[in-house]
């Protein structure tokens, strides 16, 4: 599996520059204004990982990699591990930057807000990962991008629908009640979500023929 992860990292090597530019841009924007773009970097890193699927497809890498020992298993596992690692690392970097920016501009550090932002971002990107990857394995990257667009659109629509017709005070009360445990609950949900996604992707890929 290590070999596969290294390969994906080598592939996004050229995109590291893009990330570097974004980090600088983020830092600058953070100093200039109050814009909280803490979700952009992790989200971008997922998008970059997803682009590796395109490159793989173009060179028929998937078929070739099946000729390696444990090729099928490692192929899927490594993508998930690599993506999760990237999300976590980039999120931590972003959070550290947020601390620095916060201290530099306001001489105070709003710890709670920044940390909630970080966990929220990690959860959000893991959610995107969990949804997108099985779709990518089943339908390919292009169709998946369209699918994601539809899903996000649909969720926003449903969300708006729900807020109009349902009393959300119960939910907000429940959230406040669970506040202390919220983070742990989110972590557990995230782990379960990613695991189920991985199992589904693994099954789809194992059945695939080239």
């Amino acid at each position: 599996m290590i070999g596969f992860i290294k390969k994906d990292l080598f592939m996004i090597k050229s995109n590291f520059k893009l990330l570097g530019i974004l980090i600088i841009a983020y830092t600058l924007m953070g100093f200039v204004g109050e814009i909280d773009i803490s979700f952009i970097l992790p989200f971008m890193s997922v998008m970059i990982m997803i682009s590796t699927f395109s490159y793989d497809n173009y060179n028929n890498w998937d078929a070739y990699s099946i000729s390696f020992p444990d090729g099928r298993k490692n192929s899927v596992k490594s993508k998930y591990v690599a993506t999760v690692l990237m999300i976590v690392i980039v999120s931590i970097i972003t959070t550290l930057l947020s601390f620095i920016i916060s201290y530099a501009s306001t001489k105070t550090i709003n710890c709670e807000q920044i940390l909630i932002s970080m966990f929220g971002t990690i959860f959000g990107t893991l959610f995107v990962l969990s949804f997108m990857y099985p779709i990518i394995y089943k339908l390919g990257v292009e169709k998946a991008r369209i699918g994601i667009f539809l899903i996000v659109f649909g969720l926003v629509f449903i969300g708006g629908f729900l807020t109009n017709y349902f009393n959300l005070s119960l939910i907000t009360k429940a959230i406040l009640f669970l506040e202390d445990y919220l983070i742990i609950i989110l972590i557990i949900i995230a782990i379960i979500m990613v695991y189920i996604s991985y199992k589904i992707s693994e099954r789809i890929f194992n059945k695939k023929e080239f």
Partner: peptide
């Protein structure tokens, strides 16, 4: 069917 073409022989070696 081979490695993605943005990689180099060194990348192949390390992989």
């Amino acid at each position: 069917m081979f490695f993605p073409e943005i990689l180099t022989p060194n990348d192949i070696d390390n992989t």
